[in-house]
Structure formats: C-alpha cells, structure tokens
C-alpha cells in the first residue's frame, strides 16, 4: 500500500513538472501574472493527481474510480471557456487585437495542456506500477519532452518566406510593392509613414500556405505579434498608423504595413516568422485530389 502512495506522488510530481515546463513565459506574454501561474499550476496539480490515481485504482480493482477522469475532462473544458472569456474582454481595449482565431487557439492550448499533464502522469504511474519507481520517473521525463516536442506546432517560418518591400505612395494610395494597402488623405500622416513605416511582403511557399495565410484570423495574429514585439505607433483616435495586411489577389502574396516603434526590418521579419500558424486557420487544399489538380 505504501508502494502505491509513492507511485501516486511520483505521478503528481511528474504531472506538475510537465505543467510548469509548458508554462514558459514567452513574448506572447500570457499568462504573465503570478496569479495566472497559480491558477494554471493548481489546475495542473489537480489534473496530475486525478490521472495518477487511475492506474493504482485499477490495480486495487476499484474500477469506478476511473470515472474521475470524466469529471476532470469536464473541469478542463471550463478552462477553455475561462481563457476565451478573459482574452476576449481584454481584446476590447487592445490597439492591435489578437483576433478571435488566435484567442481560440490559445484557449485550446490551455485546455490541451491539462490533458497532456494527465497523459504524463498516467505514463509515469503506469510504468512505475508495472516496473519500478525509477523506470516510472524516466518514462515521465521522456514523456514531458515528447509532449513538448509533439505540441510544438507550425510557425509562419515553415510555410512562408518574408522579404522587405518598398513602401511608397501612388497619389493618395499607400502601397507595398504593387499591393494597395489603403487610402490616406492627411499629408502629415503620409510624410510620417514614409519616414517611419515599414513594408514587407510575405510569399507563401505553396497553395496550402496560401490558403492558410488567406485567413483573416491568421493575418490578425501576425499583426498582433509584430505590434507586440517591435511596437506600433498606432494611437487611439489616430487610425492612420494601423498595421494592416493586404493580399495580391493574383499571386496570393501578402503585404504587411506597420509603423513600428523600432524601425528594424530584420526584427520585424523575425517576428512574422515566429508567429504560430493557427490551428483554426490551417487549410490543406493540396491534400485533396481536387486541390492538387487545380494547383498544377
């Protein structure tokens, strides 16, 4: 019996470690507050504890105990709602919003991370029960890294190539290379944009990438990340400096315009490359016969 207790404790430790490992604080800065950490680590602890009990309970022939996992799944669905609501509310006062797709993506990730914690705990306790504590611990550590690796997802770097573009005006139309961004009437704004603005062109690598980048949610996510990383001179009530992305309808390449705080084109391109490809935006027309046939 004492043996089972140490197995459960090991499972919990591995699960919580997995949650902390997945709680890296990156430039997307969410959650960036101590209370956010506490919430997620606590929920991770609950997930780990529930999952750690499952296999020992089965060994004790307590089959009904497994229904606990159902309860957990219900709990973690609420996390998704919680994240979605918080971020949607913050969105209203954000100058360069994340967009609904990005929020949905983040919310989904937070939910999924708790299932991953359960998976790590299950693996750990499973190996610990059938072999011993040391092997359980090793299996736990391997599964932590495995989940991190498997859940990495794609980035814009994987699907597109970004090159600097020429920002210029054709009468009142702001253009990046040959793509029209918007009409600007104020001469002061025009001068400022030519002085401080940056235009880049995003070339999708194939038709899948083209369809994915076509998604407005994906574009908004890129704009949000760029504005978050290099800053934006956009001010409330002065929409002339709104970062925008527009498409060349014939080639599918996208022009991005931003008036950054730091005019460093290398950093802007890197910021675009590091934007995650959103699950909800991903499209794969090339995986279908029709898409492949239409592409050639």
């Amino acid at each position: 019996m004492k043996d089972m207790a140490s197995i459960v404790i090991l499972g919990v430790i591995m699960g919580v470690a997995a949650r902390i490992f997945m709680l890296r604080n990156d430039y997307r800065s969410y959650p960036s507050y101590p209370h956010g950490y506490v919430t997620h680590i606590s929920l991770g602890f609950i997930a780990a504890f529930l999952a750690s009990l499952a296999i020992p309970a089965l060994m004790e022939k307590e089959y009904t105990a497994v229904t606990f996992l159902v309860l957990a799944a219900q709990q973690f669905r609420d996390i998704r709602n919680m994240e979605r609501e918080t971020l949607s509310k913050l969105e209203e006062l954000s100058l360069v919003p994340r967009g609904l797709d990005y929020i949905e993506g983040i919310a989904k990730v937070f939910e999924a991370r708790n299932y991953l914690v359960m998976l790590v705990s299950l693996t750990t306790t499973g190996f610990a029960v059938f072999f011993n504590l040391q092997i359980g611990a090793i299996a736990g550590i391997i599964s932590i890294f495995l989940t991190g690796f498997l859940m990495r997802g794609q980035f814009v770097r994987d699907i597109a190539e970004v090159k600097p573009g020429k920002l210029h005006f054709e009468k009142s139309l702001l253009m990046v290379d040959d793509i029209v961004i918007m009409n600007i009437g104020s001469p002061e704004a025009k001068e400022k944009i030519l002085q401080d603005g940056v235009g880049v062109v995003i070339h999708p690598k194939d038709d899948n990438a083209r369809a994915t980048l076509n998604n407005l949610g994906q574009r908004q996510a890129i704009l949000h990340d760029v504005a978050a990383l290099v800053g934006s001179k956009l001010e409330t009530g002065e929409p002339d400096f709104t970062p925008l992305m527009r498409k060349n309808v014939d080639t599918g390449k996208l022009a991005l315009f931003v008036v950054p705080n730091e005019k460093d084109i290398e950093c802007i391109i890197e910021a675009i490359y590091r934007t995650p490809v959103l699950e909800s935006a991903t499209q794969k027309p090339l995986s279908s016969d029709i898409g492949r046939k239409a592409a050639d």
Partner: peptide, 16 residues
C-alpha cells in the same frame, strides 16, 4: 481634415 480626424477619432481619405 486633421482637426476633424482628431475630433471624430476618424481617418481622412483623399478622393484626389
């Protein structure tokens, strides 16, 4: 145009 855009929090467009 500048004054109106600031007052109305809006943007001035040029019809050329």
């Amino acid at each position: 145009g500048l004054l109106l855009s600031r007052i109305l929090k809006a943007m001035v467009h040029d019809l050329e």
